[in-house]
């Protein structure tokens, strides 16, 4: 652990958030003008992710532990991981690109929340010193990133149905076409959510002597998994209107968001930290 001042990582964080802001403006300008800024968007996202990675590394050197514990750390690491996963999706899956109109503003909102949270460090409990924590957190972040990418497209599709947005977003591909990446991303997200539950169970068994105890975080994570499974089955079972499927995707994301950023910091479960 290095002796660094409390606000060492903050300039890098602000620079990263600024890069997200630039990417957000670019995405909306692109939609308004009907021109693609894909290369500029990719570059902005890459810059943001590198700056945020630097902020995390500096904080890590200061606190001596990874970004796992406080709300500030969880928000910071997710701001990085969500950006990184979205960058990869944006780069490798062009059909998912329209979702940037929703994804990037959401990342900016997350940034504003992060700036309102105290950057004070905590102390990592000894039960967090497990490789399974890394696996659990890693696959969880991939799940949330894919879910965010899906919700971005679903959000754009829903926006397009609102008065005033139809013309602005009219140059985007048809609903039926953009619906494909929504469900593909949610399907892969389901796999990573399942892996998150498995890795979490192994970690819980090692750390607390039980693989499942229905603590608040486990309960809400399971409800999210069920809701995601339910939406995939509902899509399969009924010829539901496209918009209702997108609403289900939004619902799953809201549950996941609550599970990731609400429950751990409002409950006294073991995930909270030191007992």
């Amino acid at each position: 652990m290095l002796s660094l001042p409390l606000d060492t990582e903050l300039p890098w964080l602000m620079a990263g958030v600024t890069a997200y802001g630039v990417a957000t403006l670019s995405s909306w300008h692109s939609a308004w003008r009907g021109r693609s800024h894909a290369s500029f968007m990719l570059a902005s996202l890459l810059v943001a992710v590198v700056l945020l990675a630097t902020a995390i590394a500096l904080r890590w050197m200061r606190t001596g532990y990874g970004p796992f514990l406080t709300l500030f750390e969880v928000l910071l690491s997710n701001l990085f991981s969500l950006g990184l996963i979205y960058l990869l999706v944006y780069w490798r899956y062009p059909l998912a690109r329209p979702g940037a109109l929703v994804v990037l503003p959401l990342l900016l909102l997350l940034s504003f929340w992060l700036r309102a949270v105290s950057p004070e460090a905590g102390q990592l409990p000894a039960t967090y010193l497990s490789i399974w924590l890394w696996v659990h957190v890693g696959v969880g972040k991939v799940f949330l990133g894919l879910c965010l990418a899906a919700v971005g497209i679903a959000g754009v599709l829903l926006l397009r149905r609102l008065p005033g947005f139809g013309r602005l977003l009219g140059s985007l591909p048809a609903d039926e076409v953009l619906d494909v990446p929504v469900w593909r991303l949610m399907s892969v997200a389901f796999i990573f959510h399942s892996l998150m539950l498995i890795a979490g169970a192994v970690w819980a068994q090692d750390a607390w002597g039980r693989f499942w105890a229905w603590d608040p975080l486990e309960t809400w994570a399971f409800v999210t998994w069920l809701a995601l499974g339910l939406s995939l089955h509902a899509r399969l079972t009924w010829q539901i209107p496209l918009w209702s499927g997108w609403l289900m995707v939004l619902g799953v994301f809201c549950l996941a968001f609550l599970t990731f950023f609400g429950v751990p910091f409002s409950s006294l479960g073991p995930h909270k930290g030191i007992l």
Partner: peptide, 27 residues
């Protein structure tokens, strides 16, 4: 399923069982 060009959860015969061609909505 993805390699075959369908979404993993497409109802049989639904319009989503298509490749990555990108027709525009043109509202």
């Amino acid at each position: 399923k993805f390699r075959s060009g369908a979404t993993a959860v497409s109802p049989a015969g639904s319009p989503t069982e298509m490749g990555d061609a990108i027709p525009s909505a043109r509202h």
